[in-house]
């Protein structure tokens, strides 16, 4: 999977805008009418079930520039959530029965207020997830981050495309695999990934190319066996996540001529059972500037919430959010292919 490891943003690429991405997807010669599929199973318009998870994107800055990144994150991105917006997130979580706050980025740890935010969430008693790229844990300024996360019982959900080196480095850059292994060992030493509910270590694998991910249940044991056999590493669970045809992965699909076949693959694998369980039905996504979205993907496509006068965290109203309709487009087939896909892995 060879692609220029720089952000679309830094190259001033057309696809750095959500509108341009949607335009490309709409033009693809496939029958990708997601709403029609929902209508056929009585789910249109798509509505939330409940709001349990607040997924907070605290910034697009990242120490890495992975080839499939749907955020177009990288070292040049300066969009960072302020402490004031984090305070609004804390208030929203506390006042609305949110059970999980899922912190994502970029590399969330690069936000200077990340540590303060985790401390506040920890005091509120919600389940905290840090979506961690692993390599950040080895950098000088963040060498104590892993211990900090352990102290606050933060679940670490980290990316590792494959338990072997070739695919991992192909997607995330040379040297990533060795650093990831080193970071996983460090997390194991802190007690992560050993069956302790308070120190949960979850690995995430994305396909390294234009194909669907493996079955989570079928592959998890093998991952555990191989990482333990080769490195003595243990972890608690594996998520398999489908690559969304947006942002840098979309750029790769277009530049390699894979877009139409990939979209057709997603359409052919459409699973109505997964459609009923998509994550946007129980999650609200918060952008770095406090804007609210149905999911992280809609956030990156700049598709703010429907039916909400001011979709911003400062006006968070759980009851109004439960009554909204969820915005869909052809990228949503990424969440309904095969066993379904979400930020918590497969959904069926």
């Amino acid at each position: 999977m060879t692609i220029s490891l720089t952000t679309l943003h830094s190259r001033e690429h057309d696809l750095s805008s959500g509108e341009a991405q949607l335009r490309i997807l709409e033009k693809a010669p496939v029958d990708a009418d997601f709403n029609k599929r929902l209508d056929a199973i009585g789910l249109a318009p798509l509505m939330p079930t409940q709001i349990q998870i607040l997924q907070v994107n605290v910034g697009k800055m990242c120490n890495m520039t992975c080839s499939h990144c749907h955020v177009d994150a990288g070292p040049d991105r300066t969009e960072i959530m302020t402490r004031e917006t984090m305070e609004e997130c804390l208030h929203a979580a506390q006042s609305s029965g949110i059970t999980t706050v899922d912190i994502t980025g970029g590399a969330p740890e690069l936000n200077p207020n990340f540590y303060w935010f985790v401390e506040q969430l920890s005091a509120q008693g919600v389940h905290i997830i840090d979506r961690c790229n692993l390599t950040i844990l080895l950098t000088g300024p963040h060498k104590n981050t892993a211990a900090f996360l352990a102290k606050h019982h933060v679940e670490i959900v980290c990316s590792l495309p494959h338990y072997r080196k070739t695919s991992t480095d192909a997607q995330r850059g040379d040297g990533t695999y060795d650093q990831s292994i080193q970071a996983l060992r460090m997390l194991n030493d802190l007690g992560y990934g050993q069956g302790n509910e308070e120190l949960k270590l979850t690995l995430v694998t994305n396909p390294v190319g234009a194909f669907l991910p493996p079955s989570q249940s079928s592959i998890e044991d093998e991952w555990k066996h191989e990482l333990h056999r080769n490195f003595g590493i243990t972890f608690d669970r594996l998520y398999t996540i489908t690559n969304m045809p947006i942002s840098r992965f979309l750029e790769w699909l277009v530049s390699t001529g894979n877009l139409v076949d990939y979209m057709q693959r997603l359409l052919d694998a459409y699973n109505p059972i997964a459609a009923a369980k998509v994550m946007c039905r129980n999650t609200i996504s918060v952008g770095w500037d406090g804007m609210l979205y149905d999911c992280d993907f809609n956030q990156m496509l700049e598709m703010p919430l429907n039916s909400i006068a001011r979709p911003h965290i400062s006006d968070f109203d759980a009851n109004a959010l439960k009554r909204r309709t969820i915005r869909t487009a052809s990228h949503c087939f990424g969440c309904t292919a095969g066993a379904g896909s979400s930020c918590s892995g497969s959904v069926t």
Partner: peptide, 13 residues
């Protein structure tokens, strides 16, 4: 080839 990739094999395997 597609099936192997989708079942989680890499190109070395």
């Amino acid at each position: 080839t597609t099936a192997c990739l989708e079942k989680g094999s890499d190109l070395d395997q």
